[in-house]
């Protein structure tokens, strides 16, 4: 976390703020992420009390990671994009497209050594198109990624109109293998998701590229004047998001044992919600990939609680919408405050 704080300092140092202002900005960036941790703790405690100690079990917590691994990977990619003050609406569709593409390639008899790289490259390629539209043609991220959404969704149906079952043992191995430690277990898909988080956290906080991402979101003009490679950072953020879409497609295909072109309709909104709940500011430049992970777990826990209570799944959308609103208001207050401190 100390490394994260220094990164923020680098980002905001661009706006020649006073020392006190920088300190406030540093603290304020952490606040929403902490709020997410507190909410997660409250959710756990509430569920534990309400369900008389049946909730916090190794099995449930292991399942939480397993069931939300695909969303976690999407949220990691989305964090990069939102940190550059962009947005990527295409991730749900990219996940569906790469998922069905992989299932089709495997069904045609190609080995996973070809099919899996094809999925990842397919996702990254759509990300590249979006990134180039945003950077070279100055298209608003919203519209560029909207084109990406249409493209990926349409391509998913071009690959196949109906679902394709995956018989390949190597792909299914990702899901069926359970590494056990007592009652705890983890699947290769869960490991992939956690690895994605770890790599992203390392890149964002310990590399020059990561610091550039923060700088671009903090103040693009200043970052450019400092001689940072803004263009490359922005395009790469979308490529990473697309790549994560491909990875999520692989995880979801392994998880459900099939590719389905209708997968992930609206998942981009879940990913955005998880990132925002995890404390990343939509105005860019502030936030942590670990916060996004907490955001995904908040999302997953709410879903589990609703299932446990046997309530309508439609409450899910209402609760996530409300949570999103609460966090946006928190962010709004923080931005207004730090704006006053460092004008």
């Amino acid at each position: 976390m100390t490394a994260a704080v220094t990164t923020t300092k680098d980002g905001t140092a661009a706006s020649t703020a006073g020392r006190a202002g920088t300190f406030m900005a540093r603290r304020s960036a952490l606040l929403p992420a902490l709020a997410a941790v507190i909410i997660l703790a409250l959710l756990f405690a509430g569920a534990e009390l309400f369900l008389r100690g049946d909730f916090i079990t190794p099995r449930n917590l292991s399942a939480l990671l397993l069931d939300n691994a695909y969303l976690l990977v999407l949220a990691v990619g989305m964090t990069f994009v939102i940190l550059t003050s962009g947005i990527d609406l295409s991730v749900g569709s990219v996940m569906a497209f790469t998922g069905i593409l992989g299932a089709r390639l495997l069904a045609e008899g190609l080995p996973p050594a070809i099919a899996i790289p094809a999925m990842l490259i397919g996702g990254a390629a759509i990300g590249l198109v979006i990134g180039l539209l945003v950077q070279v043609f100055s298209v608003q991220p919203f519209i560029a990624s909207l084109a990406g959404l249409f493209l990926a969704r349409g391509l998913a149906f071009v690959v196949s109109l109906s679902s394709i079952k995956v018989e390949d043992s190597a792909t299914l191995w990702l899901q069926t293998t359970r590494l056990r430690l007592g009652d705890w277990y983890i699947t290769p898909t869960g490991i992939i998701a956690l690895l994605a988080v770890a790599v992203a956290a390392f890149v964002l906080h310990y590399t020059r590229f990561g610091r550039t991402i923060y700088a671009v979101g903090g103040q693009e003009q200043s970052a450019r004047l400092m001689g940072l490679n803004v263009a490359r950072a922005k395009v790469m953020a979308y490529v990473i998001s697309g790549f994560c879409g491909g990875l999520a497609g692989l995880i979801l295909t392994a998880y459900s044992g099939a590719g389905y072109p209708r997968n992930g309709i609206g998942t981009e909104l879940d990913a955005i919600a998880a990132v925002v709940i995890g404390g990343t500011l939509l105005s860019g430049g502030r936030g942590y990939v670990l916060g996004s992970m907490v955001g995904v777990f908040v999302y997953g826990t709410i879903k589990t609680i609703i299932t446990f209570m046997g309530a309508e799944q439609s409450w899910m959308q209402i609760i996530v919408g409300t949570l999103l609103l609460v966090f946006i208001v928190i962010q709004r207050v923080i931005v207004a405050r730090s704006g006053q401190k460092s004008p």
């Binding site: 947005i87 909104l269 955005i272 919600a273 439609s314 959308q317 919408g321 409300t322 609103l325 709004r332």
Partner: peptide, 23 residues
């Protein structure tokens, strides 16, 4: 009134609205 970015402000209802309709 609250000055929230339009994309995000309407995203709230976009998520919650369908749930409300289902209810």
């Amino acid at each position: 009134v609250f000055g929230i970015q339009p994309i995000i402000a309407t995203l709230v209802l976009m998520l919650a609205g369908r749930g409300a309709a289902l209810l």
